[in-house]
């Protein structure tokens, strides 16, 4: 289309409800967008003029999904964990704790599933979006609390905050899961609305939550892919092939970069928590095994509920676990084989 050698400018709006305080938004701006721009600059046929609307400028954190569906943004980061009703397939890592703490592996595996099971991309297509990749932005969930927690019995009567299906990891231990947004935890911990939170060290250190929840139970519950990078389907269709290709390639680089950053930040964050008076208790393997075996089989429940809707829950679960086994992950409970 570009015979005259002129550069065609394309307008794109990138959205997320989260601000640059969040690692994945910083990397979207500092890594993803430059990666796309660089690829396009190599041929010089196209240039994207970005409107970077983060931090709730156009949509709130739960509104990215409908914002990309309705075309308020062209590309963005959907926090899939908020949409258990619309994106149940995306919850697979939340249904399989104690399997892996390698965010890169989780994200790559899920992209593998997306290639193998059309239902994943179809779910986004149903909501007017093109699935590009997914993102694992945390190394592993841990427990951060106001009072020391070292064993399962300590959860009795506690209110534990987290985002989604992972609240079920505490079922059966007498704790109440309270779903809420990351940004409200500090105050909720301080006021006792919450006694503990299930989060990852980078977000706890970044928001100084160790001030109100100094105790850490390092149980390595597992890494998850809570994000999906998608584009509005109509905007996507209008993009020239070269631009689509550049965005897809950069998205995969962005996915791997997020995983890398999640791991890189974890160690430093634990150090920061410790330096600020945090007390870290590492749960021994026996404790982790007990935990994994005593919780309900969330994975089976998840798969069964999908099968009821005519979605390949069981096959996806097996495929996911097979990949994890092939990658020699320290799996405590074989969720698919019960």
């Amino acid at each position: 289309t570009n015979t005259a050698g002129a550069t065609e400018t394309i307008k794109m709006t990138a959205i997320d409800g989260y601000s640059t305080k969040s690692m994945w938004v910083r990397e979207f701006i500092g890594f993803f967008i430059p990666a796309i721009d660089k690829k396009l600059a190599a041929t010089g046929n196209y240039k994207i003029q970005w409107n970077q609307a983060f931090g709730g400028q156009i949509v709130k954190v739960r509104g990215v999904m409908s914002g990309l569906q309705k075309g308020l943004g062209d590309i963005g980061v959907v926090t899939a964990v908020f949409h258990g009703d619309k994106l149940p397939l995306q919850q697979i890592a939340f249904a399989t704790p104690f399997v892996t703490t390698d965010p890169g592996l989780v994200a790559r595996t899920f992209d593998g599933l997306a290639g193998k099971f059309p239902a994943i991309k179809q779910a986004f297509a149903k909501f007017g979006q093109v699935y590009l990749t997914n993102g694992a932005v945390l190394d592993s969930y841990q427990i951060f609390s106001k009072k020391s927690i070292t064993k399962l019995g300590d959860f009795q009567g506690l209110k534990v905050g987290s985002a989604g299906l992972n609240l079920r990891w505490l079922q059966g231990f007498g704790a109440a899961g309270v779903s809420g947004s990351l940004v409200t935890y500090y105050n909720k911990l301080k006021t006792g609305v919450l006694d503990a939170i299930m989060l990852w060290p980078e977000s706890v250190a970044g928001r100084k939550m160790y001030e109100v929840a100094p105790y850490v139970l390092k149980a390595n519950l597992g890494s998850v892919n809570s994000k999906a990078i998608t584009a509005n389907a109509k905007s996507w269709k209008k993009l020239p092939g070269e631009v689509q290709k550049a965005i897809r390639a950069a998205a995969v680089e962005y996915r791997d970069r997020l995983a890398e950053q999640a791991l890189a930040k974890a160690a430093g964050s634990f150090a920061k928590i410790k330096a600020n008076g945090g007390k870290i208790h590492t749960m021994d393997q026996a404790g982790r095994v007990e935990w994994a075996n005593k919780m309900p089989n969330v994975a089976k429940g998840w798969a069964a509920s999908l099968e009821k809707k005519g979605l390949p829950g069981n096959a996806m679960l097996t495929s996911y676990m097979d990949t994890m086994r092939a990658a020699k992950q320290p799996i405590i409970r074989q969720w698919d084989k019960e």
């Binding site: 258990g84 009703d85 619309k86 299906l165 079922q171 969330v298 509920s305």
Partner: peptide
């Protein structure tokens, strides 16, 4: 059937 909350909770 959109819902708020988490299935199972």
């Amino acid at each position: 059937d959109y819902f708020v909350g988490e299935e199972g909770l």
